[in-house]
Every structure is written in C-alpha cells, then in structure tokens.
Nucleic acid binder design. Structure first.
Lengths: 145, 145
DNA sequence: ATCGCAAATGCAAATCAATCGCATTTGCGA
DNA sequence: TCGCAAATGCGATTGATTTGCATTTGCGAT
C-alpha cells in the first residue's frame, strides 16, 4: 500500500479502494497516455493481486480521477477512443510520429502570449489549450519512406 | 449538378455519384465542422431530392473524402465522435466553448517559428499540428456560471 | 445511345468504446 | 466491531462507426 497514493486520495476526498489504488499506481508508472482497456489488461495480468478489476470499474474510476483532475483524458489524432495519463501538473504537448505513432512529450509552450491576444480579440475567457504536433521521428526518417 | 464539384471529383479520381455530390455540396456550405449524423439528417430533410442517403453511405463517403484530403476529420475536446469539414486549404485552429461546445474558427497561426525550432531540437521532420483552444464564450460568460 | 461490369449503395446485423441498472461487497466513521 | 453509504461486479444497453451481402448505378467501351 503506497502511502503517497493514500495521501493523494485523502487530499482529493477519494475513498481509498483496492481498485482505485491499483489504477492510479499503474498510471503513475506509465510514461505515456494509455487507454482504459490497456489499464484493464495490465491490471488483469498483474499476478501480484488475485482479484481482477472489472472494465466498467476502470471507466468509473477514470471518470472520477478526471473529475478531480488527478488524471488527464486525451484523444489523439483521429482515434475515437480516449487515453489517460497521470496529471504531473506540468504543462506539456505531444509530438506524434505519423509513421510509427510514437508519442513524445515536449516541455515548454509557445502559446502564453498568444492566448492573451486571442482573449482580447475574441472576448472568450481562455482557459486552456491542446496542441499536438505531427511529424516523422528520426528513426523513421532513417528507415526511409 | 454543380460543375465545380464534378471537377473536384475528377481531379481526385472520385466517381461522381448523387450521394457523394450531395455530401460534399452540403459540407461546402457548412461554416463549421459537423458530425456524420448531422450530415445524414440534413440530407434526409432536404426535399429537393426524393431519395434519402443511407447513414452508412455517409460514413463510407466521408472516409473516402478524408483519404483523398478533400475533407478533414477532427474530434474535439473529449467527445468520442468525429466531425468533418470541407478542406478549404487554409491553415486554421479552433476555439471551443467549454460551456456550450460551440466551435469558432481562428484564422492565423502562432506556431510557424516554433515548429522550425522544434524540428532543429528534436530532429523530427515536422509536418503539421493541431491546436485547439478552450475557453468560455462571451454569451456563456454573460449567463454566469 | 446502349451494354456490361466494377464500384457504390441500402439495409440489417455486427463491432467497439463507453455507460448504466441493479444486486452484492467493502471501506471507513461512529 | 457495526452499519450503511459508496464502490464494485456483471450483464445488458447505448451511441458511433463498420461490415457483409444483395441490389443498383455510373461510366468506359462498343
């Protein structure tokens, strides 16, 4: 039982159940966004626990985590399924290789000043943005094509 | 029978069927991205034609148009359905109201110089990007909440 | 203009991600 | 330790999209 997770749940008024603990523990380990189904499979195959976590429970847990902002939900490219990642509270974007679909995180953000301008022009109250950049990664460039 | 559309199809080796003609004609009229279902309903309710276009046909037509790049497919926010828009070959982004989900197009792009830098830093060959900005539109701000 | 046939469409059934209803179980405060 | 609201499991359901197959249609060759 990871004490940091217990604290995280307490701070967000989230009841500490085995299933929630296992989901967030797994997400914290993941370096890139994952689907609900892949979380389900990972937990299913984890022999450290004999009980299996139900897929609908995974979805319910993810909804809760997203609502509490401890997890972020995305959907990349034209995929019509969501991916989830632990919210590390750092503003970042993703660089996606169009050949191999590898997702790389980019630190830093070029949009601060632009958002200010845009808010003034449109009278929207700007809250956040999502930026994905597509290209060909170095290894796919080497392999030609 | 719109001759521009006939030309567009010819240029893209797309067989000119009634259904395809009606779908692209409708998309060209739309100012903002629309779902497959709303295209289906719009064509269904159009009394200028007595034949109705099937929903699976709409999907098949959209897939073809996207493959040929005469139409762009998006999916905004965390909606798990796609929207489609005629590809006007102009680079633009979208501003989405988190309250009413209205989508507004933004002309211009703040990322030209940034992409150059990013390419140099990461050795990716940068191809394109997708930027969505979220906020609260003026009318929703007025209504409070 | 007509014919032939590959390609496109209609329709219904299937699939895939996500959600829901309800009976059972579990974590946590008294 | 007890009680109960909240969480989970499981199966059924929804909503978007896709597919299989029989029928129809557009277009090039005649």
């Amino acid at each position: 039982m990871n004490q940091n997770i217990v604290e995280l749940f307490k701070a967000n008024q989230i009841k500490n159940t085995t299933q929630r603990h296992r989901v967030i523990e797994y997400l914290i380990k993941c370096k890139e966004p994952v689907t609900a189904e892949s979380i389900y499979i990972a937990l299913f195959e984890d022999d450290a626990y004999e009980d299996k976590v139900n897929l609908s429970t995974v979805y319910r847990i993810l909804d809760l985590f997203v609502k509490q902002s401890i997890v972020l939900r995305n959907s990349f490219g034209n995929e019509h399924k969501s991916t989830y990642e632990f919210n590390r509270r750092e503003h970042k974007h993703h660089l996606i290789c169009v050949k191999c679909n590898k997702v790389t995180s980019i630190k830093g953000c070029p949009l601060k000043a632009y958002e200010q301008d845009l808010g003034n022009q449109t009278h929207f109250k700007i809250l956040e943005h999502r930026l994905e950049i597509f290209g060909v990664c170095p290894s796919c460039q080497e392999r030609g094509n």
